[in-house]
Simulated scan of single mutants.
Amino acid sequence: MRHEEVIADLHRRWVFGWERDEGDAPFDFRRTFGEFYDFNSPDVRLYDDFDPAQRVATTAAGYGSIWEPAFDRMVSAHHAVDDGPHVVAGHELAASTLTFVARITMPDSTTDIRTTTSLVWHRTADGWRIVREHNSSKVLPAGDLDGVLPTPKTP
């Protein structure tokens, strides 16, 4: 399989790693994303403007510590790929861009978003791993994704 195809598959699977259903076990970032992020590289920089504090994580574990509490509070999170992934790949580095939509349901609110995500992948002995991430999200009007996302599972 060509590098571009491998990265495209990884990026698609990465999106759906963020799925949550009511009653899921506590969100464990390393367990969920261990095959995606480089947990050992000193060159990691990960950013998502959906983080209210807009922190830049310099380790994969640090990035997980940003998202674990938020995802543990969620009732559900459902995603669909809207565009991409678009990939450029060399022998050691690759970049991919993908746009997804998501509905995030908290105990007291629901938010629909459209996010453009750009990932830089480094080829390691264990496979391709994320070393850079930049996500830009736009909150959509309430109900904008009605009928777009799959029906949530019930516990």
Rank of each mutant, 00 (worst) to 15 (best):
E4L: 03
E5T: 15
V6D: 00
I7P: 03
A8M: 13
D9R: 09
D9T: 12
L10R: 03
H11K: 12
G17C: 07
E19G: 04
R20L: 07
G23T: 14
D24N: 08
F27L: 10
D28I: 04
D28E: 11
F29T: 05
R30W: 08
T32S: 06
F33C: 13
E35K: 13
F36R: 06
F36E: 05
F36C: 03
Y37K: 04
Y37A: 05
Y37T: 01
D38S: 11
N40H: 14
S41D: 10
P42C: 05
P42R: 05
V44G: 07
R45H: 10
R45T: 00
D49R: 09
F50L: 11
F50N: 04
D51W: 09
D51S: 03
A53Q: 15
Q54W: 08
V56I: 14
A57H: 10
A60N: 08
A61T: 15
Y63W: 14
G64D: 04
S65T: 14
I66G: 00
W67V: 03
W67K: 05
E68W: 10
E68V: 06
P69L: 02
P69S: 02
A70C: 00
F71E: 02
R73M: 05
V75I: 15
A77H: 04
A77P: 01
A77R: 10
A80S: 12
A80C: 02
A80V: 14
V81E: 01
V81T: 06
D82Y: 15
H86S: 08
V87H: 13
V87M: 07
V87A: 08
V87C: 11
V88A: 10
A89F: 12
L93V: 14
L93M: 15
L93F: 15
L93K: 08
A94L: 06
A94M: 07
A95D: 02
A95F: 00
S96N: 10
T97K: 09
L98C: 11
F100P: 01
F100W: 15
V101E: 10
A102W: 02
I104Y: 14
T105G: 02
M106R: 09
P107A: 05
D108E: 15
T110V: 15
T111C: 06
I113E: 03
I113Y: 07
T116W: 05
T117L: 10
S118W: 00
S118Q: 13
L119Q: 04
L119V: 05
W121I: 01
R123N: 12
R123S: 00
T124L: 04
A125C: 03
D126A: 14
I130G: 11
N135S: 08
N135Q: 05
S136W: 00
S136R: 13
S136N: 12
K138A: 08
V139C: 00
V139R: 10
V139Y: 01
L140C: 05
L140H: 11
P141T: 11
A142C: 03
L145T: 07
D146F: 09
